[in-house]
Measured scan of single mutants.
Amino acid sequence: FSITQFVRNLGLEHLMDIFEREQITLRVLVEMGHKELKEIGINAYGHREKLIKGVERLI
């Protein structure tokens, strides 16, 4: 299971460039909250919320 699959499953594949540029893996994403996601350029609250909720389902 990769970050690419995870992001695609959430319908947020347009954010993949950010994850690749910042070298974010699923392991790193698990540790990130709204503040960190915003810092790397994910400005939409809804997108950040989707990512965080998606990660919570993985754990």
Rank of each mutant, 00 (worst) to 15 (best):
Q23R: 14
E36A: 05
N9W: 12
Y45I: 10
F6Y: 05
G33S: 07
M32D: 00
K35S: 11
T25D: 09
Q23I: 05
L37H: 01
G41N: 02
R48G: 01
K38P: 02
K38C: 09
I59H: 09
L26V: 08
R48H: 02
I18H: 06
G46D: 15
I18N: 04
I40V: 09
T4D: 14
G41I: 04
F1Y: 11
L58I: 10
E49T: 08
G46S: 15
H47I: 15
R21C: 06
I24E: 00
F1M: 14
G46H: 15
T25W: 04
L37W: 05
E22L: 05
S2Q: 10
G33V: 03
E36T: 03
G41D: 02
K35Y: 08
E49K: 11
G41K: 05
K38Y: 10
G11I: 01
I18C: 03
G11M: 05
I52Y: 03
H34M: 03
R21W: 05
V28E: 14
F19I: 07
R8L: 10
I52M: 09
N9H: 13
E20Y: 11
I40Y: 04
G54D: 04
H47R: 02
E39P: 00
R27I: 10
Y45S: 06
T4K: 12
L12K: 01
L37I: 03
L10E: 04
H34Q: 04
Q5T: 12
I59A: 09
N9G: 13
E39H: 09
R48Q: 04
L26G: 01
Y45G: 05
L51R: 00
N43C: 13
M16V: 12
N9K: 12
K38L: 13
E39R: 10
R21E: 06
L29P: 00
L58P: 02
F1I: 14
G33E: 02
T25M: 03
E22T: 06
L12R: 01
L26S: 03
Y45H: 13
R57T: 11
K53R: 13
T4E: 15
L51A: 02
F6A: 03
F1Q: 11
L26E: 03
A44W: 10
T25Y: 03
F1L: 15
H47E: 15
I52A: 02
M16G: 08
Q5C: 12
D17V: 14
M32S: 04
H14W: 07
A44D: 15
E13W: 09
I59K: 11
I59Q: 11
V30D: 02
E56L: 11
Q23V: 06
I42Y: 00
N9T: 12
R21N: 08
M16E: 08
L10Q: 05
E56Q: 15
G46R: 14
F19D: 01
V28F: 08
E31T: 15
K50M: 14
L15W: 04
E39N: 10
V7D: 00
I3T: 05
E39Q: 13
H14P: 08
L26C: 08
V30C: 11
L15K: 00
E36L: 01
F1N: 10
H34R: 04
E31C: 14
E13Y: 11
I24G: 01
E36N: 04
A44Y: 14
S2Y: 08
R57V: 10
I42C: 03
R8A: 13
V30G: 10
R8C: 10
I18T: 06
G11L: 03
I42R: 04
F1P: 11
R21T: 07
G54S: 08
I59L: 09
I3K: 00
G11K: 08
F19A: 01
A44E: 15
T25G: 06
G41A: 04
N9S: 15
G33D: 07
L29G: 03
N43Q: 13
L51F: 05
L51Q: 00
M32A: 05
E56D: 07
L51K: 00
F1V: 13
T4A: 14
L10P: 00
L26I: 10
D17P: 15
E20P: 02
L12H: 01
G46W: 15
F1G: 09
R48I: 08
Q5A: 12
R57Q: 13
Y45C: 07
V28Y: 07
N9V: 12
V30Y: 11
L51P: 01
L29R: 02
I52C: 06
A44K: 14
E36D: 08
R48D: 01
E13T: 09
K35T: 09
K53W: 10
R8F: 09
R27M: 10
K53C: 09
G41F: 04
V7I: 13
S2R: 07
V55E: 00
L51T: 01
I42W: 01
K53I: 09
I24Q: 00
N9E: 15
E49M: 12
H14S: 11
E56M: 12
L29H: 01
M32N: 02
F19T: 01
T25H: 05
E13A: 13
R57H: 12
V55R: 05
Q23E: 07
V7C: 11
M16P: 00
R8H: 12
R8M: 12
G41Q: 04
K35N: 11
S2K: 08
A44T: 11
Q23K: 12
R57W: 12
V30A: 15
E49L: 12
E22C: 08
T25F: 03
I18M: 06
I42E: 01
S2L: 08
K35P: 09
R8P: 01
F19C: 03
R21H: 07
G33M: 02
L37T: 01
V28C: 11
E39D: 12
G11T: 03
E22A: 09
N9P: 04
I52K: 04
R27F: 08
E20G: 06
V30Q: 12
E56V: 09
E56C: 11
G33P: 02
E56I: 11
V28P: 02
E39I: 08
R27C: 15
D17Y: 15
L15Q: 02
R27V: 09
I40L: 11
E39Y: 07
K50P: 01
V55P: 00
A44M: 11
E22I: 04
V7E: 00
Q5G: 09
M32K: 02
T4Q: 15
I42V: 12
I42F: 04
N43E: 15
R27S: 13
E56H: 12
E49R: 10
L51E: 00
L26D: 02
I18W: 04
K50L: 13
